[in-house]
Design a binder for these strands. Structure first.
Length: 663
DNA sequence: GCCAATCATCGATAG
DNA sequence: GATGATTGGC
């Protein structure tokens, strides 16, 4: 295999002997390329692809790497097992779950479902209500989940994050326990359970461990800085039999602390595994020096200094441009204008991206882009699956796949006229009490919704007969659901149109359980404009989190203003601000050549208006003015301190005078 | 008693 | 703008 185009450090990582290996790879230093070559090299040495496991942050990333590896060593690369920790765990549990008492037909709950179940348990235990302040379901789920992913106790977390709920700790613990029982009883797993159960399987069942880890001759982990304690341990456990684990990451790009990620994993790796070979990749191949100068400035402003400095292989390029504006309306206008200019100059839309902290920061821009007829795709933020009508359809599919799934029943039953929460609960309980669990419309025949239930039971029976053809199942479910849409929602039209894409999504799947799990584990992540659908020229709009690992010729970073980016939630906590800074670093280092930073004084959004306090990510950056070209558009900051014109007439005369004498 | 409609509270990032 | 507690109506 040809390794000539790799530099010395990359080659060292690629050809390292089996063992423990940490690759510290700064942004743009050819991290992906190194991993791809490592994979290819292993296969070229005669390794069995089935014994190689590649754990990445998204499944898309894994597929992309396998594609590139197969270009080097042929199609066998596709037999490498690759995906996220969660999807890998899912696959293992489908096969070995019976050893820890898991049915084969378990369902995976996405975040919203999990929160709903927590909410049900919450009302069931009569917590909250009556003026009592008790955490909301989302808060509760977050607490429980953080506990699982970091290995910390609920009491420690409540004490640290919600000290005002300390009195409720016993109830919170009771709720957490009930939630866990409920999931077990119903054969449903939330995201965390996938990891927890795999971890347990590997730790506590020696025979399972020998079989699973025995099949992992080489484990490779990408974006290791964003793994949490549990994931770190799983990676380590997977390598115990063959002792070959390579992790790749960059602690300066750690941006998932909110999900329990800890840089400790990367920092302590060499200590945990003695004899670890460490490789550092420093040469940046992506960006021009001016872009890197700014990135280095961001690093320099970090409280905890990273001992790194990026230098470029291609020096030439324009300075990043910092555009100061009055508000997010101007921001949208300026971005559209610049995009059009760049396109005129021959930069295709596909080579440009707009990045932002929160999905809603791009709302106005989306309108403007639409008005200017610029096709775009939006990544991150509100998912397709979270729309009520989509959840309805999936609830029905889940009921068909796993009749123990009480949460899904609860939702499906409430679709009928005359069934509310109370009745849904009772019918649901009856379903679960039956053995095997099934809907018996008999007892309800006299009620208003009796015929509906009978119809539903028929539909479910019909689905059972066609289980292996997921496309056909989805068609049937839609045939049942679409006619009811108008009664359920005012805007049935667009919702029906939305659902048209479902059969396409389902087509080709042979197994309903797996289809549902896949959708939960890798939700379709982009929202396309019609124009973007039609052509393949479109500009990416993406949250910074979703932009991880990607790169574009031109990058715009929106809403650099305290309260927006950095987010208002982090302003009080220095540690959170540091994470915002790393996020900024990630955004900046996505750019190959052109970088525009947009700093509006006001970002309108729900509740958060009238910021205007500057942006500490910029203000704390040393020598900012040497690193960027600063432009003020519209009302420059400070202009409002000028004396106000007394009236329109005066303003008009003033303008006339100035334009005459200065113009 | 239960369902459906009305009013206060709190907001992000994602597998 | 969604969620949850509350209130009004059958």
């Amino acid at each position: 295999m040809d390794l000539d185009h790799l530099n010395a450090a990359q080659r060292a990582a690629v050809t390292a002997p089996p063992g423990y290996h940490l690759v510290v790879a700064g942004a743009g230093t050819g991290k992906t390329r190194t991993l791809v070559h490592r994979l290819a090299w292993l296969l070229d040495q005669g390794e069995d692809p089935a014994g190689v496991v590649l754990l990445t942050f998204t499944r898309r990333a894994a597929e992309e790497m396998l594609r590139r590896a197969s270009a080097l060593v042929g199609g066998k690369a596709h037999r490498v097992r690759g995906g996220t920790f969660h999807s890998f765990a899912h696959g293992v549990l489908r096969r070995h779950g019976d050893r820890i008492g898991l049915g084969r037909a378990f369902t995976v709950l996405d975040r919203g479902d999990a929160a709903d179940m927590v909410g049900l348990v919450r009302t069931e235990l009569a917590l909250g209500g009556k003026g009592r302040r008790f955490p909301q379901k989302d808060t509760l789920l977050k607490l429980i989940s953080t506990g699982v992913n970091t290995g910390r106790s609920l009491s420690a977390l409540v004490d640290e994050q919600f000290p005002w709920f300390l009195n409720d700790l016993p109830d919170i613990e009771r709720l957490a326990a009930r939630y866990a029982e409920r999931k077990l009883a119903q054969d449903v797993l939330d995201y965390d359970d996938l990891l927890v159960h795999l971890d347990r399987l590997l730790k506590e069942h020696a025979d399972a461990r020998r079989e699973i880890a025995g099949g992992c001759r080489h484990v490779l982990v990408d974006e290791y800085q964003d793994t949490n304690r549990l994931q770190g341990r799983i990676a380590a456990l997977l390598s115990v039999v063959h002792g070959s684990l390579m992790v790749v990451g960059d602690e300066a790009q750690s941006i998932y602390r909110f999900r329990g990620a800890t840089v400790e994993n990367i920092l302590r790796f060499p200590t945990v595994f003695s004899g670890t070979q460490v490789t550092v990749l420093e040469e940046n191949y992506r960006s021009t020096q001016p872009v890197l100068d700014l990135a280095n400035g961001v690093l320099a402003s970090a409280r905890e200094r990273f001992d790194k400095r990026l230098h470029s292989q291609q020096n030439e390029g324009p300075k990043p441009v910092l555009i100061e504006l009055a508000d997010d309306g101007d921001q949208a206008g300026v971005v559209v204008q610049r995009v059009l200019e760049l396109r005129e100059q021959g930069v295709g839309l596909r080579r440009m991206a707009v990045l932002f902290r929160s999905a809603w920061h791009a709302n106005l821009l989306e309108l403007e882009l639409g008005r200017a007829n610029i096709p775009f795709r939006k990544f991150g933020g509100i998912q397709f699956l979270e729309a009520a009508h989509v959840k309805d359809v999936f609830a029905l599919l889940r009921v068909a796949a796993n009749p123990r799934d009480g949460l899904a029943w609860f939702r499906v039953l409430q679709l009928f006229e005359g069934i509310g929460k109370g009745t849904a609960q009772r019918i649901g309980d009856a379903v679960l009490a039956a053995d095997p669990p099934a809907l018996d419309p008999g007892p309800w025949a006299g009620r208003r919704f009796g015929p509906d239930l009978a119809h539903l039971a028929d539909l479910l029976a019909d689905i059972q007969a066609h289980r292996q053809d997921v496309g056909a199942v989805v068609e049937r479910v839609l045939g049942w659901y679409l006619p009811r849409l108008p009664a359920l929602y005012d805007d049935a039209g667009p919702r029906a149109k939305d659902l048209e894409s479902l059969p396409v999504l389902a087509d080709g799947h042979r197994d309903l359980d797996r289809f549902l799990a896949e959708v939960a584990l890798e939700p379709p992540s982009s929202v396309d404009t019609e124009a973007a659908d039609a052509e393949d020229e479109w500009i990416s709009l993406s949250t910074i989190h979703s932009a991880k690992g990607l790169e574009w010729h031109t990058v715009f970073v929106l809403a650099l203003a305290d309260g927006a980016f950095p987010s208002g939630y982090s302003l009080q906590d220095p540690e959170l601000i540091e994470e915002e800074r790393r996020l900024f670093y990630v955004a900046v280092t996505r750019a190959e050549r052109c970088l525009f930073l947009l700093a509006p004084r006001i970002v309108r959004g729900r509740g958060l208006t009238g910021l205007g306090q500057g942006c500490r990510l910029l203000d704390e950056l040393p020598d900012l003015d040497q690193r960027v070209e600063r432009i003020a558009e519209g009302h420059a900051p400070g202009s409002e301190t000028a004396p106000e014109p007394a009236g329109e007439a005066e303003a008009a005369r003033l303008a006339a005078v100035l334009s005459f004498y200065d113009g």
